[in-house]
């Protein structure tokens, strides 16, 4: 019981940290940071766009870790970790696509373009929506966990290959335009634009970890309910 309390406490700390950084991040992104020289105010979307994708990748890395740990040690705890991280990751991936689309409309003139990163993010979303569907369609708990872990690992291994193929497809077949799909290289970002970005990335990382900790607690409680029900009928 004390362990659960301690866990809950560290979750609360994450929540407070997330809230703090979010408030500062919102202030610096919307008010303090200067508008971009080329893109104007629209550039401010980047202060949530890049943090979202960082949070999404973090979640998918956690899915991979949880999957490996589960296959190795077979502890329900690791499976709950992977399952929860997939759910939070899907949320952040979907948000990344929406933000990219809203940023693209004034920048490129269209809501959607088949640029490498946008396409890659959409594929990432499909893979992990598939993961969640698989989990919900296999009734046997243990088998679902094993199959989910395998998909989590295969999906993660596939990401670099998908990245490579999609990127080549866009660059080998059409010359890069002025609106290069890739964001400004790091060395081109100026400090006044960079540090609000860093604050927002930290904020989103804390936020995603906090949401993850909440989701894990939901999963653990559901697991305990199952345990109680099994104990009750036995």
């Amino acid at each position: 019981m004390a362990k659960a309390e301690k866990k809950r406490g560290s979750g609360e700390i994450l929540g407070v940290l997330a809230l703090l950084f979010i408030l500062v991040g919102l202030y610096v992104a919307l008010i303090q940071a200067p508008p971009d020289a080329y893109q104007g105010e629209v550039q401010r979307i980047m202060y949530i766009h890049i943090p979202s994708i960082v949070a999404a990748y973090l979640c998918f890395f956690i899915v991979f870790l949880g999957s490996c740990l589960y296959l190795w040690k077979r502890e329900t705890r690791d499976d709950i970790l992977a399952k929860s991280a997939a759910e939070v990751g899907v949320l952040f991936t979907a948000l990344t696509i929406i933000e990219g689309s809203i940023w693209g409309k004034p920048t490129w003139g269209v809501w959607w373009t088949w640029d490498a990163r946008l396409t890659l993010t959409a594929l990432l979303l499909m893979i992990f929506v598939g993961y969640i569907m698989l989990r919900s369609l296999i009734e046997d708990e243990e088998r679902g966990a094993v199959c989910g872990a395998v998909v989590g690992i295969i999906g993660f291994l596939d990401i670099p290959l998908i990245h490579m193929s999609v990127y080549w497809w866009r660059t080998l077949h059409q010359p890069p335009s002025i609106f290069r799909p890739d964001k400004l290289p790091w060395e081109n970002i100026k400090w006044p634009l960079l540090w609000p970005l860093i604050i927002n990335i930290v904020a989103f990382v804390f936020l995603s970890l906090y949401l993850l900790s909440l989701r894990i607690r939901v999963g653990e409680t559901e697991e305990r309910i199952k345990g109680e029900m099994l104990g009750g009928t036995a």
Binding site: E41, I48, L95, I98, W103, K105
Partner: peptide, 16 residues
Amino acid sequence: SWGFVLLAYGIVWLAL
């Protein structure tokens, strides 16, 4: 352009 910014922030924070 502020409209797009607010739209993006609105959707994201609403969803979160």
